[in-house]
Design a binder for these strands. Structure first.
Length: 313
DNA sequence: CCCGTTTCGGGCTCGTGAGA
DNA sequence: TCTCACGAGCCCGAAACGGG
């Protein structure tokens, strides 16, 4: 933590002529006194620090000591900041804040506002609409476990709603369609499995460590490495869904049926996520084939209806 | 669990520069 | 030249951490 802050401060000082201690304290969310101690440490490490007292004072590094560090163009830094901000939206931590501070430190002060403006023009937000504190906490634990090769245990509700106790060796976190998944070796199933983080509870990072197994980090689509078989649905949709369908399965899988109706061949995995997606389209979308999916959709609608049509007590 | 060390924060003083 | 605002720096104590 401290070493990260020290490196960040050096990067900032290298770029700026001077910066005040309170500004640094605010930036790193620490006490002013802590910044002075950091400056002292940096000084003792042999980096010549100059302090300017009085109004418009501040802290700086001797000009002669500054090195050429124009590795990144302003455009590079803007792109990196946009990317980091999007990660920060789902995985906020101090390390990321420090990295962003370092990058901002590379921007000359008179151009900082312009870079921030550009960075703010694009917002990639993967967070769900409603609170995700529990998921954040779990993500933090999983990240620690992955970094330290430590197994994790948790209670899990699978896509069929069945509860089980699991112990896995975690390998990778995946963010897909606003949901976090973890890929790991399940000791119960003795194979690699994927678990949705939001379906986990009582997650614990265990003391025991594991020796990493062969794991294909190059696999792009998490569904291809699971037991979830992709099938194709034949959907009859209203033209109002055309845009979203083109986005999801491409123009080639869509043909005009008649009037404002289209036939869509839709890639589908038989789980809650995909069934909910189909149901979300409401009366603008009908599943024609295969029969078993059609039946399952009908059952889900009837189940829903039974709740709403329940007689008052 | 204890004790020494490290890290951090609060409160204060001192130094500097701008403006009246 | 004096005053005021701002910022650096010092002292001390609390909390956290780590080793025995």
């Amino acid at each position: 933590m401290k070493i990260d802050r020290l490196v960040s401060i050096i990067m900032i000082l290298l770029e700026r002529k001077k910066i005040s201690a309170p500004e640094l304290a605010k930036m790193f969310e620490v006490n002013l006194r802590t910044i002075y101690r950091d400056i002292d440490t940096i000084n003792q490490a042999g980096i010549p620090i100059i302090t300017y007292r009085g109004a418009n004072g501040g802290i700086g590094i001797m000009e002669e000591y500054k090195i050429e560090k124009k590795l990144f163009t302003l455009s590079d830094i803007t792109e990196l900041l946009i990317g980091l901000k999007s990660i920060y939206s789902t995985m906020s931590n101090q390390e990321l804040l420090n990295t962003m501070a370092k990058l901002k430190g590379l921007v000359p002060k008179d151009e900082l506002q312009q870079v921030e403006k550009k960075t703010n023009r694009i917002k990639i937000d993967h967070t769900p609409w409603f609170g995700n504190e529990r998921i954040q906490l779990n993500l933090k634990k999983i990240k620690t476990a992955i970094n330290e090769n430590r197994s994790i245990s948790f209670k899990y509700f699978d896509r069929l709603g069945q509860k089980s106790e699991r112990k896995i060796e975690p390998y990778r976190l995946v963010l897909k369609n606003s949901s976090w998944y973890i890929q790991g070796y399940c000791t119960l199933r003795e194979d690699f499995r994927i678990f949705e983080v939001s379906n986990m509870s009582s997650l614990k990072v265990l003391e025991e460590t594991f020796i990493p197994r062969e794991f294909d980090y190059d696999s792009q689509d998490i569904y291809f490495r699971t037991d979830r078989k992709t099938i194709t649905l034949k959907l009859l949709i209203h033209e109002s869904l055309l845009d979203i369908m083109i986005e999801f399965c491409g123009k080639d899988n869509i043909t005009l049926y008649k009037d404002d109706k289209y036939i869509v061949y839709f890639p589908f995995v038989e789980d809650d996520y995909f069934y909910n997606m189909i149901l979300r389209f409401g009366d603008k979308c009908e599943c024609l084939e295969p029969e078993n999916v059609r039946v399952e959709i009908i059952e889900r609608i009837e189940k829903l209806l039974s709740i709403y049509k329940k007689l008052p007590k």
